[in-house]
Simulated assay, not measured.
Amino acid sequence: MSDAPAIARAADALARATPDALATRARGLSDRAIAWIFVAPTIALLLAINIFPLIWTVYLSFTNYRANRLNQTVEWVGTRNYERILTDPDIWHNMQVTAHFVLWTIVLQVLIGFTLAWLINRKFRGADLWTTIIVLPMMLSPAVVGNFWTFLYQPQIGLFNYVVTFFTGAPVSSFEMIGSVALAPWAIVIVDTWMWTPFVMLICLAGLRSIPESIYEAAEIDRASAWRQFWTITVPMVAPFLMLAVLFRAIENFKMFDLVVELTSGGPGSTTELASINLKREAFEKWRTGYSSAFAIILFVTVFGLANIYVKALNRVKGR
C-alpha cells in the first residue's frame, strides 16, 4: 500500500506524456539534440559557402598563385601583395572614384527618398498608385537598367540630351555623358540614384508611419509650428530608419559592379573604374589571383570596419 502514491504519480505522468515526447525519450534524444539535427545541415552549408572561401582567400593573399596556370609551384610571398596594393597610386585612384560614387549616391538618395516618403505619407488621393510607379525602377535588373540608360545617354538620339537641351538651350550633341571624363562619374550617380531612391523611400516611409499621431496632436496643443514639429519630432524619430538606409546603400554601392560595367566599363580611361571593377580585372583578366585576393581582403576589412563603427553610432541614436 505504501507504493500506491508513487504508482499513481507515474501513471498520471504517463497519461500526460504526448506520443512524440515518448518517442523522443525512447530514442534518447533531447529537444536540443533534435534542433541541432535540423540546423546542422544549414550551418554546414553556410560554412562551405562563406567561411571556407574566406579562409582560402586569406591564404592565397599571401602567395603568388595564378588561377590560369596548371601544376604551378605556389610561392609564399608574405605581406608583399598587401604592400604593393597599399602603395599603388592606381588603387588609391580606384578608391577615390568609389568614395565619390558612394558619397553622392547616398546624399541624393537620402534627400530625394525622404522627400518622396514625406509627400506620400500625406495620404493624398492616388498615393498608392504613385508609390507603385516610383518603386518600379528598383524591380529591374541592373543589366537592363544599364543598357536602358546607355541608350538614353546617346549623344545624338538619347532622350536625356533632349531634356537637358530643353532646359539649357545647349546643342543636343554637347552632352556626351558616358564618354566625357568630367560627366561620366555623374552619369553613373544619376542612374544609381534613379534605380535605388525608391528603396530609401520605402524605409523612410516605414519610419514616418511608425510615428504615433498622438505625438503630433500633443505638439499642436502646445502650439508648435509645422516646421518645429518636423525638426523636433519627424526628423529625430525617422533618423534611425535613415541611418539604416544609408548603411544598406553604402555597403551595396561600395561593391557596385554590374551597373557600372554596363554603362561605362570603367571608362573613359579609369574615370569610373570602381574598386570592384579593378578587382575583377586583376583576378579574371590579368589572373593575378594572389594579388587580387589581397585586394579583396583589404576591401572586406574596410567595409566591415566602417560598418561596425556605423552600427555602433546607429545604436547610440536608437538609445541602446
Rank of each mutant, 00 (worst) to 15 (best):
T131W: 13
A99V: 09
W118K: 09
L45A: 13
L140P: 03
G158C: 01
A127G: 07
L86E: 06
M139V: 12
M138L: 06
T42M: 15
L86K: 07
L140A: 15
G126W: 05
H93C: 07
N94L: 02
L129W: 09
W92P: 15
A127F: 13
T115Y: 07
N64A: 00
P89D: 11
P155V: 03
I91K: 01
P89R: 08
T115P: 02
L108A: 05
A35C: 14
V135T: 12
I134H: 00
M138G: 12
D128Q: 09
L129R: 09
T105M: 07
P41N: 02
Q156S: 10
L86S: 08
A35D: 14
G158H: 00
G78H: 08
W76E: 08
I157R: 15
T115W: 10
M138A: 10
M139N: 07
V110L: 09
K123H: 08
I43Y: 06
L70A: 15
V58T: 14
A143T: 15
K123V: 09
T87Y: 11
R27F: 02
R69P: 03
M95Q: 10
D88A: 03
A67E: 12
L111Q: 02
V102A: 03
G78S: 05
W92Q: 11
D90S: 14
R27Y: 00
N64P: 00
